[in-house]
Simulated scan of single mutants.
Amino acid sequence: MSSYANPSLAFLALDGDAFRAPAGTPVPPDIFAPSLSGWVPYGGIKAGFTKQVEQQITDLYVWNKREAPYRRKKDAKKPKILFRAVDQGPASALTVLRGGSISAGNGGHEWIEGDEEFFAFIFRVEDGDEAKAFYAQKAEAGPPPEEKYDGEDLDGWDFDLSPLIPDDGSKPLRRWTKSNPFA
């Protein structure tokens, strides 16, 4: 049996929130605060989210093809966040509409899609005293989400967000935790 395993350093996300704000909105002074001034919360997220990082890696060989590559060429990392919003609140509507609007008329409300739109994004998950948060100062929604009405799942949208390099040149996706594994 391992003498190095430390269950106190592991946690399962039991609760979480997501927020959006205009692109360029700085990270709040306390990213884990119960409410974030200037940020619009998503009303409900289905069981967390997925953070992916794609990166193309190419092995480089010398001209006479030795057994192993002499180096690897790595393209830039491309982070993505995938999640399902299961509410029809303002944050979900703004993300679906891509900078569009909602107009009243004809006995209902017409959802009018806009052009592409950039926005800031925060996603955080918690388990008791432990927590993680991700922040993108500038993000863009991926392909328009499909809407599924099948009677088996919560009505909502599967969002694919790509953090982009902010105008100030900082990292596209930043991460915080409440604990420090190096302390």
Rank of each mutant, 00 (worst) to 15 (best):
I81D: 06
I81N: 09
L82N: 03
L82S: 08
F83S: 05
R84W: 02
R84V: 02
D87R: 01
D87H: 00
G89I: 12
P90F: 08
A91P: 02
A91L: 05
A91N: 09
S92F: 01
A93P: 00
A93R: 06
A93F: 05
A93I: 05
L94K: 08
L94Y: 08
T95K: 03
T95Y: 08
V96T: 10
L97A: 14
L97E: 11
G99Y: 10
G100I: 03
S101V: 06
I102L: 07
S103M: 04
S103R: 15
A104G: 13
G105N: 03
G105K: 08
N106F: 07
G107P: 06
G108V: 11
H109F: 03
E110V: 10
E110D: 15
E110H: 07
W111S: 12
W111M: 14
W111F: 14
W111T: 07
I112H: 01
I112T: 01
I112P: 05
E113I: 12
G114L: 01
D115K: 12
D115W: 00
E116K: 11
E116C: 10
F118D: 13
F118R: 15
F119G: 10
F119S: 13
A120H: 09
A120C: 03
F121T: 08
I122R: 09
R124P: 00
R124N: 00
R124I: 03
V125E: 05
V125W: 01
E126H: 12
E126N: 07
D127V: 09
D127H: 14
D127G: 15
G128A: 13
G128C: 10
G128M: 12
D129F: 02
D129P: 06
E130Y: 00
E130D: 14
A131F: 03
A131G: 14
A131E: 07
K132H: 07
K132I: 04
A133F: 08
A133L: 10
F134G: 01
F134K: 09
F134I: 02
Y135F: 11
Y135A: 01
Y135L: 00
Y135W: 09
A136N: 05
A136Q: 06
Q137M: 07
Q137V: 04
K138T: 11
E140V: 15
E140A: 15
A141W: 03
A141P: 02
A141D: 04
G142N: 10
G142Q: 08
P143W: 07
P143L: 14
P143Q: 15
P143C: 09
P145K: 09
P145W: 01
E146M: 05
E146G: 06
E147T: 13
K148I: 14
Y149W: 11
Y149S: 03
Y149G: 01
D150C: 06
D150A: 02
G151F: 12
G151R: 13
G151S: 14
